[in-house]
Design a protein around this nucleic acid. Structure first.
Lengths: 263, 263
DNA sequence: AATCGCGTTTCATATATTGGAACGGAGGGG
DNA sequence: CCCCTCCGTTCCAATATATGAAACGCGATT
């Protein structure tokens, strides 16, 4: 492995949704890399458009800020990366149909290490802000769409996920191992996951698995909205639409068996 | 500048919408970097999730493909990068309002070197496929949203753009310097750009400039759709909505003058 | 069974990275 | 007004790291 590249990428990884802006000095403290070295990295990234330093007003003058942000190049690469996921283009038409059926946000999630990664989203017309956004991560133990993925992984994967430190995102986030195991079992048995206020207060979502040609579950699809839009008693209506959609997408991926769940 | 980092990022830059998949060998030919060196780079990127090697079926077995694709990490970084653009969150509510007014796709573009970069898009309900997608680029001379940016740049910038090799994307792409200059002038004088089949056959779009607090034009907003949806005779209706939206977004950015165009 | 094409590993060498030291400029306090 | 501090930046000798020719491994092809 190239140490230089590794350090470089690790620096980029520090730019998160929570802290998207860093000064050289802050990075020096965080990474223990000496300032001259960091400076060289940041300059290289900035010259290549991977990082950017916005202009700011300072006494009527427009000067380069000493804050670094992720740059335009990454937006471009991110779009190409998202487009390189085979399932995405296959799934989008079905996701749109599902969106129109219920007028709820529809999400497509991929398994990535111990997280679920949102790779596509069809917005609801209702101007509701949800946690979900393309490019966001959620740990596999929290939220319906993540957890339904976990339900279909090996015991080793499940242990790996549960061994990592966990976080209580909202009032509904499961926090005991026992509770999470029970929810994982529920998913495998019933073919869906249901979550209330797990990642964001007041948000409900229902998720079902998508099967690959080799019968693994690497993707899931979910609908989500505020609590009043997805009442428990209508769950069978929603599941019918979700399973139908998941069956169609699975078939497109080359899954050759009948979809194993139905209302 | 760090040569190692630079080489690494340049490798990533080879993954494009047109060629999103590369084998080690192809990269060796393209970059003139010897295979062992490339191998080390690719391994580092793959281990960090910046590149990925999908699994493929081979005689019933699931094996690592020797094709590399851009990885999940870049989707994540791309989303954070897009979110780091100040205007984006300011503009989205206004873009949604505009989308609902006309039921056309609404795009937000930022100036990036000699290109326009799509940084946000509100889809129309009509299932129409357009060239535009977040993360895509278009040269500043082609398409309404790019060209309206160019209309408000310095003469130097305009020369720089025109000196680069150009491409005819579709039947409406302007190809002579003279023609492009005329269109640029039109934009500055009238405060909008109108394009028919410039980036994609059969697609029409109308774009207007957004003004920064320092009165520069770094962003533009546009509506787009297939030809029949944006007839020439309704252009004033559309412009009214576009200018109103652009004025509101400009004001949010701190532009303190009255928006200089109106119906 | 021999050959080819590519990905991968090895390792002596060359070179790019490293980071302590020192510089410079903006901002703040006395 | 000058001094001091805080950071970003530049310099350059020391050295860790990248480099790539050579050789290997392995599956496919003949």
């Amino acid at each position: 492995m190239s140490k230089t590249l590794e350090k470089g990428i690790n620096i980029l990884t520090l730019f998160t949704e929570e802290k998207p802006s860093w000064r050289l000095d802050e990075l020096a403290i965080e990474t223990d890399i000496p300032k001259p070295t960091l400076h060289r990295f940041l300059k290289t990234f900035t010259d290549l458009g991977v990082l950017k330093r916005p202009y700011v007003q300072s006494g009527g003058q427009l000067v380069l800020s000493d804050h670094y942000l992720l740059g335009h190049k990454l937006i471009e690469l991110g779009a190409i990366a998202a487009n390189s996921i085979e399932i995405r283009s296959l799934a989008i038409p079905y996701m749109k149909m599902l969106q129109q059926k219920f007028d709820l946000a529809v999400q497509l999630i991929v398994l990535d290490e111990t997280d679920g990664l949102y790779i596509e989203k069809i917005e609801s017309l209702k101007p509701v802000l949800l946690y979900t956004r393309v490019g966001r991560r959620a740990p596999l133990y929290a939220g319906a769409c993540s957890r339904i993925l976990l339900s279909f992984q090996s015991e080793e994967k499940i242990s790996e996920v549960l061994q990592k430190p966990r976080k209580k995102y909202a009032s509904g986030t499961a926090d005991s191992d026992q509770e999470i195991h029970k929810l994982i079992e529920f998913g495998k048995k019933n073919g869906y996951a249901y979550s209330v206020s797990e990642l964001e207060e007041g948000t409900v979502s229902i998720a079902v698995p998508i099967f690959n040609s080799d019968r693994r579950v690497e993707y899931s699809i979910s609908i989500a909205g505020i609590e009043s839009l997805l009442p428990q008693e209508k769950i069978n209506t929603f599941l019918e639409g979700l399973w139908e959609t998941a069956a169609l997408i699975s078939a497109e991926l080359g899954y050759s068996m009948p979809y194993p769940y139905g209302v």
